[in-house]
Design a protein around this nucleic acid. Structure first.
Length: 776
DNA sequence: CCAGTACTTAGGTTG
DNA sequence: TAAGTACTGG
């Protein structure tokens, strides 16, 4: 119990209160994670079996780190057997076991946002709706928030309020999309992120035996970041905890920043109602930041009406005032801040990893990347396009998914013609219509085209047959081969690796390397998951994990000593010595979209609060008076949030002095300003790029005319040629060079040749278009 | 069927 | 600016 000495009074009381419902309201930097970690350790220390503990965290990384800490504290590795992770990953694992009870096979696929949007897009098209109105993103967010509030498609349609909303925004048929979307996901044996929670609720609600099983299993439940749970999550926790009521939730209403995706601060208030005999503890002493930072943060948040009363304080030293930087452009902002970082690194012997640049939107990273690169300061960008969202990785994963679940339509559509095997969009569309008519999945139709009345020419039918056979052959090894062996085989036999290997462009090489990295990752996964020699870690095991991985979960040792660039959202729960909160401009931070209602503005303010409180030693704020947005220069005003900070804590020198500096511009900051002013550079590139096409267009016009004449001239010749184009003939093509015909199919005038070009690979060409000349 | 190009349009934050 | 799509010529 030595470890209890490492806690302050409030922390210790919360940690050692083991039985019954408990809520901990923890101010920023007050040791929230510490309490959670020590509390779990203490539970185990007091004889609670680690298998009986469920801990829900906000990221998988947080779970991993906490497990390690716990093992260290209690001096055994029983920390490993705690069920700990995000809501999504924990309940995905449970659904893998139980899904058959709610009618889903347990090899179900998890659709990510891309898959979801792509499916919605298809459905909107099929229903003949206006895709300008029914944009995938908007439709998805409607469906998503419905699901997070446990409103099924059926219930959605019956809800007069929701239906009125959709009518007023001009989307009266949105519910039809939802209904069809639900159907199609089910047919594809797929669940989206929201389904993982939604279906868990259905499972626990409709199957008392299953509920009882997990209530008995999870005798102790802990939830981190409780302020950011949505209704669906709230209800899962409530159901599971109903029997033993050993539930501990930890959170901070002032840091609630996910209302946009359904998070509900009400959950904190409901706690009192659900567990009237609950205990409430407040952690108010901040151990992280200087007095200036803590007090400045308090002054910001005091502008919010809705909050639970608490008094965050610190006994840390006063610290430096918060510096505010005014710049004339986004590029100058990048430059100034990079220089500042450079200076501090030298003067204070700071590490790269001590710094973070926090912005509101991912698009803002560009100017910082550029300026940091110029100064040779290594950085890491969190968020944005993650490794797993890259096209080549998604394509490869799609093969894996399709192997595990043939009905996964989004995966099927991705790879059926990649690498090119001559199964084009026309064919897929036909098959899709056929699937709809027969109420079957796309795969079922392709597997038995004739039986399902799908009319295709024999060539296409053969190609589909080959594809189906290939996927099936992969599938025979699902349970016998390890994930690594099988994935390797798929990468080779699907033709993906070959396709990228022949591509010698830098991008092609990078893609090839990425696939190798993916395979290495799978190898690592197989090794770490293995608990015994005989155990086989299979492809489905890997697939559950990979769908729910995020960038933050990637622990690349190369990334250790780098500056962090990320959105404020992504910075939640983290801390840095030096924090730069950038782009503090009206319409950006606070976001333009959040200015309509008070509650949205308050969420932006909490976001700003979160940003500032990440800093331990020094916080810096910046704004630009102009910046590029979608390629257009816009004027910006300083954010109201800067004005809301009590001026005693701000150092505004660099805001007021700028105007004078501007006057002695020729001498004061010539190089800095002229090149820092992105507008010039920007318009230049814009101009050249704009100018280029006009030149090329005129030249292509010439070329076009020339070609037309050529092709007319060729007409007579080609008639002769067509007859001479037979399998085995050597031909030449103006773009692909010399090649050999390896197949001819189709009936005139749609005769199609498959030609192998040693330089460009195998191509399929329609003879009526492609001018093939027989040579030799 | 394929590939290059012209055109359009951008709701921001995430598991 | 950048990405994604619709169009078009071969």
């Amino acid at each position: 119990m030595e470890y209890l000495k490492e806690l302050n009074e409030a922390q210790r009381v919360a940690t050692t209160h083991l039985q019954g419902p408990l809520m901990v309201i923890a101010g920023a930097g007050s040791g929230k994670t510490r309490v959670l970690t020590y509390r779990i350790a203490h539970l185990i220390d007091n004889g609670v079996d680690s298998f009986n503990i469920l801990a829900l965290t906000f990221t998988n990384k947080a779970a991993k780190e906490m497990k390690e800490r716990i093992s260290t504290i209690i001096g055994s590795d029983s920390g490993r057997s705690i069920w700990m992770g995000t809501f999504h990953s924990v309940f995905a694992r449970i659904l893998r076991v139980e899904s058959e009870k709610i009618g889903y096979p347990n090899n179900f696929t998890i659709y990510d946002t891309q898959d979801t949007k792509s499916l919605i897009k298809t459905i909107v098209k099929e229903l003949g709706l206006d895709d300008k109105l029914y944009k995938p993103g908007i439709v998805y967010s409607r469906i998503s928030s419905a699901k997070n509030n446990l409103i099924s498609a059926r219930a959605y349609m019956d809800d007069t309020g929701i239906m009125a909303d959709d009518r007023s925004t001009g989307r009266p048929r949105l519910h039809e999309v939802y209904i069809e979307y639900e159907k199609r996901c089910f047919k594809a044996h797929a669940m989206d992120f929201d389904d993982l929670l939604f279906k868990t609720n259905i499972l626990l609600k409709n199957h008392p035996d299953v509920l009882l099983k997990y209530q008995e299993k999870f005798k102790y439940i802990l939830v981190d970041e409780y302020q950011d749970t949505n209704y669906s999550q709230y209800l899962i926790v409530k159901r599971l905890a109903a029997r033993h009521e050993n539930i501990c939730v930890v959170g901070d209403d002032a840091q609630s920043i996910y209302a946009f995706r359904g998070a509900n601060i009400q959950n904190i208030l409901n706690f009192k109602k659900d567990y009237p005999d609950y205990n409430l503890y407040k952690l108010e002493q901040n151990y992280r930041s200087t007095k200036v930072i803590v007090d400045a943060a308090n002054s910001i948040i005091s502008n919010n009406k809705n909050q639970i009363k608490k008094n965050v304080w610190t006994s840390n030293s006063e610290g430096e005032k918060i510096k505010v930087l005014k710049t004339y452009s986004d590029n100058e902002e990048g430059k100034l801040i990079s220089n500042d970082i450079f200076d501090i690194k030298n003067s204070e012997q700071a590490l790269n990893s001590d710094f973070a640049i926090l912005y509101r939107t991912n698009a803002q990273s560009r100017s910082f990347e550029e300026s940091l690169r110029k100064l040779n300061i290594p950085y890491r960008i969190f968020g944005g396009l993650s490794f797993y969202q890259r096209k080549e990785i998604k394509d490869t994963l799609a093969y894996f998914r399709l192997t595990a679940n043939h009905n996964d339509e989004e995966a099927l559509k991705r790879v059926i013609n990649y690498p090119k095997r001559g199964i084009g969009l026309t064919t897929i569309d036909k098959a899709r219509v056929c699937a709809n008519e027969n109420d079957k999945s796309l795969w079922e139709v392709l597997e038995n085209p004739v039986e399902n009345g799908l009319k295709l020419n024999t060539g296409t039918q053969n190609k589909i047959g080959e594809f189906v056979t290939m996927i099936k052959s992969f599938a025979t090894k699902i349970s016998s081969d390890s994930a690594f062996d099988l994935c390797n085989e798929i990468a080779v036999n699907s033709g993906i690796l070959k396709e990228l290997y022949t591509d010698k462009t830098p991008e092609g090489v990078a893609k090839y390397d990425n696939i190798q990295e993916l395979l290495n990752g799978i190898k690592g996964f197989v090794e770490t998951q293995k608990t015994s020699e005989e155990q086989i870690v299979t492809l489905p095991d890997f697939l559950i994990d990979v769908a729910l991985l995020t960038d933050a979960d990637n622990d690349d040792p190369d990334d250790k000593n780098k500056i962090s660039l990320m959105t404020v959202h992504a910075a939640k729960g983290l801390e840095f010595q030096y924090v730069y909160v950038v782009g503090l401009e009206e319409n950006l931070f606070p976001s333009q979209m959040a200015l309509n209602t008070r509650s949205e503005l308050e969420e932006e303010r909490r976001l700003f609060y979160v940003a500032i409180t990440r800093a331990k030693k020094k916080a810096t704020l910046s704004f630009a008076t102009s910046r590029y947005r979608w390629g257009q220069l816009v004027q910006c005003e300083m954010s109201r949030f800067i004005e809301e900070v009590d001026s005693r804590f701000l150092n505004m020198e660099r805001v007021f002095s700028r105007n004078e500096e501007k006057n002695d511009l020729p001498f004061g900051m010539p190089a800095n300003n002229s090149s820092g002013f992105s507008s010039k550079k920007g318009t230049n590139t814009y101009k050249t790029k704009k100018a280029m096409p006009t030149i090329t267009t005129s030249s292509t016009y010439n070329k076009k005319n020339l070609k037309r004449i050529e092709s007319v001239e060729n007409k007579e010749g080609s008639e002769v040629d067509v007859k001479r184009i037979v399998v085995g003939a050597k031909v030449s093509h103006e773009r692909f060079g010399k090649g050999k015909v390896i197949n001819i199919e189709g009936t005139p005038p749609n005769v199609k040749a498959t030609v192998f070009f040693p330089e460009k690979g195998q191509k399929q060409l329609l003879l009526k278009y492609a001018k093939l000349n027989v040579i030799g």
